[in-house]
Simulated assay, not measured.
Amino acid sequence: MSTVQHALEQALQTLQPSHLQLLNESHMHNVPPGSESHFKAVLVSAQFDGQGKVRRHQAVYAALGPLMQRIHALALHTYTPQEWVELNQAPDSPNCMGGGKHQGE
C-alpha cells in the first residue's frame, strides 16, 4: 500500500467507518506511473445519519485536513449504514477524459 493511501485511510478512521474502501485510481488518469494523486473513497459511517452530502463531504475534508494538499482528486461516496445496506455498492468511476479534453480534439 502506498504511503499517501495509508495516511488517508488512517485519517478517515476518525469518522469511525463501518466500511471503508479507498482506491488509488491514479492509473486511470494522465499521470506518471506510481502516482498517488487520484483516489476514490467509499465510506459508510453512522456519523452521517441525518446529514446531507455536503455535510458528509465537509466531515471527510475535516478528517483529512492537510492531507488534501497531497492529492489532486478525491471522489467521495458517503453513506449511512442503512443506505449502504440498501445499495451495497458505490458507482464506478468514469473514464478519464485526459484533463478535460475529449478524444479527437
Rank of each mutant, 00 (worst) to 15 (best):
P32K: 11
S18I: 11
K101N: 08
L43V: 09
S45Y: 04
Q82I: 08
L20P: 00
P32E: 15
E105Q: 08
L23F: 05
V44E: 05
T80I: 03
A11L: 03
L20M: 13
S93F: 14
P17F: 02
T3D: 10
G100W: 15
G34R: 12
L8H: 00
P17W: 02
H102C: 09
H6T: 11
V54W: 03
Q10T: 11
F39T: 01
L22I: 03
A46E: 12
G34F: 02
T14H: 08
H72V: 10
Q51H: 15
L67S: 02
A62N: 05
P32Q: 12
L64I: 04
L12T: 00
T3I: 12
K101C: 10
T14E: 14
G98Y: 00
N95D: 14
E105K: 15
A46Q: 12
N95A: 06
M97G: 10
K40R: 13
H72L: 07
L67D: 00
S35V: 03
A63L: 04
V44L: 03
I71N: 00
R56I: 01
G34E: 05
Q21Y: 09
H19F: 15
V42G: 01
S45T: 03
Y79G: 01
H77F: 08
G99R: 10
A11F: 02
G104C: 09
L87W: 06
P81E: 01
D49V: 10
P17Q: 12
I71Q: 00
P94C: 09
R55W: 08
N95W: 15
A75P: 06
H72G: 05
G104I: 09
T80Q: 01
Y61W: 05
T14Q: 06
L23V: 15
L87K: 11
G65R: 12
L8M: 09
S2W: 00
V44T: 06
A41Q: 06
L20S: 00
L22P: 01
